[in-house]
Computed example of a mutant assay.
Amino acid sequence: MTTRRTFMKGLAGGLAFCSCGMLDAASAQHHAPRRLPVMVSGKRIRTVDVHAHCLFHESLELMGDAVARILPPTKGQQEHFIVVENRLRSMDAMGIDMQVLSINPYWYGKDRDLSAKIVQINNEKLAELCASHPDRFAAFASLSLHHPDLAVQELEDAIKKKGLKGAAIGANVGGVDFANPKFHPVLAKAEELGATLFIHPYRLGELASRFKGNGWLANVVGNPLDTTIALQKLIFEGVLDKFPKLKVLSAHGGGYLPSYAPRSDHACFVSPQNCDPTIQLKKKPTEYLNQLYFDSLVFTPEALRHLVAQVGASQIMLGTDQPIPWEEHPVDHVFATESLNDSQKAAILGKNAAHLLDLKFS
């Protein structure tokens, strides 16, 4: 049986960084891997990856034997524990100037004191890493979102005292959508602080049995679906009207929502009995997509073209999911999208993120 001790012991000897992986078909045929610096129209672009992960041993150890279930069974698993020179080398090879680091929540459901300790360690370690390499790393804070009053304090501390850029939150919190009024104090504090909330899939427990079988459907289908539901709830529950200046950035291109968004505009016309008459949206559902932000992790130039057509190039930023090798050539992905003009490419590669997160480069 795998225990916390045997699991952590195994990790301790396996921190060598691996950037191996096959080039995607387009890059393999048409492009050499992009390297820093990245140029658009003869001008240097500071590229920013808003979707990159890490973990810290000190906080994981507080989870006891449950730690063995936290890391995904994937390539790149051990590289969550950043060896700085190796992560920087990988970023350079991909053409990434800066990564905005985040930690997927594994502490939801834990008691208040344990969750607070895990979050404290995570945020302190993130702040230390960013301070040591301010041109290369920024970060989204961890929050005890299942204890909303505590999360409000943690968010304020992370922004005002630690210099973090927002917070990474699960698309649901133990099966409860964060559009739920119980989380509104957190959303209000984020809006007040100008902090970005980065939505990452968490778990869709009620569908777990249907995801079993070949193909890792819990991730391939479940993760985009989780994000889709979270965004739709923000729209249809009137949350984005209540908090119009809230900055929401979602992983994996916003899941399925941008791919089939116009269906949302017809729902309450076709079936008014399934819509709450007390919630009167100020805009059509699809129009709210233009005030949300999305990473570019949609794999193909055609998918990126469609995402831009749906939400606007001003709302999209690079995302890799590193160290998990979902997208190893994010910059080439943007350059391969021939429908984009140079201004749009520059925006997606880094200018949008720099503006949204108030990033400073020396």
Results as ranks from 00 to 15, higher is better:
Val50His: 02
Arg46Asp: 15
Gly42Ile: 15
Cys130Ser: 11
Val40Cys: 02
Thr47Lys: 14
Leu150Pro: 00
Leu143Ile: 15
Cys54Asn: 07
Met39Leu: 12
Ala93Val: 11
Glu124Asp: 15
Ile45Ser: 06
Ile45Gln: 01
Lys117His: 11
Leu101Pro: 03
Ala116Thr: 03
Ser59Trp: 07
Asn123Phe: 08
Lys117Gly: 00
Ile103His: 02
Asn122Arg: 02
Ser115Asn: 03
Ile70Met: 06
Met94Tyr: 03
Gly76Met: 06
Pro105Asn: 09
Asp113Tyr: 02
Ile118Met: 01
Val40Arg: 04
Glu79Gly: 01
Asn104Gly: 13
Met94Phe: 11
Ala93Ile: 09
Glu128Arg: 09
Asp92Leu: 06
Glu124Thr: 13
Arg89Gln: 10
Asn123Gln: 08
Glu154Asn: 09
Ile96Trp: 00
Pro37Asn: 10
Lys75Arg: 14
His133Tyr: 08
Pro37Trp: 14
Ile45Cys: 07
Ala139Glu: 07
Tyr106Gly: 02
Asp111Pro: 14
Ser115Trp: 02
Glu61Ile: 15
Glu128Cys: 04
Ser41Arg: 11
Phe56Gly: 03
Asn123Pro: 13
Glu128Gln: 10
Lys110Gly: 01
Cys54Thr: 12
Arg69Leu: 05
Ile96Glu: 05
Gly109Phe: 13
Ala52His: 00
Gly95Asn: 08
Ser144Gln: 06
Leu129Ala: 07
Val100Met: 14
Ala116His: 00
Arg44His: 15
Leu62Gln: 02
Arg112Val: 09
Pro105Glu: 10
Gln120Met: 03
Leu114Gly: 04
His57Ala: 13
Ala52Arg: 00
Ser102Lys: 03
Val48Ser: 07
Asp113Met: 09
Ala68Phe: 00
Phe140Gly: 06
Glu61Leu: 13
Leu101Trp: 05
Arg44Gln: 14
Ala138Thr: 04
Val40Met: 10
Asn86Glu: 15
Glu79Cys: 14
Gln120His: 08
Val38Thr: 13
Gln99Trp: 05
Ile121Ala: 03
Asp135Val: 09
Glu154Trp: 04
Val100Lys: 05
Pro73Gln: 02
Glu58Trp: 10
Ser90Asp: 14
Glu79Lys: 01
Val50Lys: 00
Asp97Ala: 09
Leu88Asn: 06
Tyr108Gly: 01
Lys75Ile: 10
Ser115Phe: 00
Ser144Tyr: 10
Met39Ile: 13
Gln153Ala: 11
Gly95Val: 14
Leu88Lys: 10
Gln77Ala: 15
Asp111Gly: 11
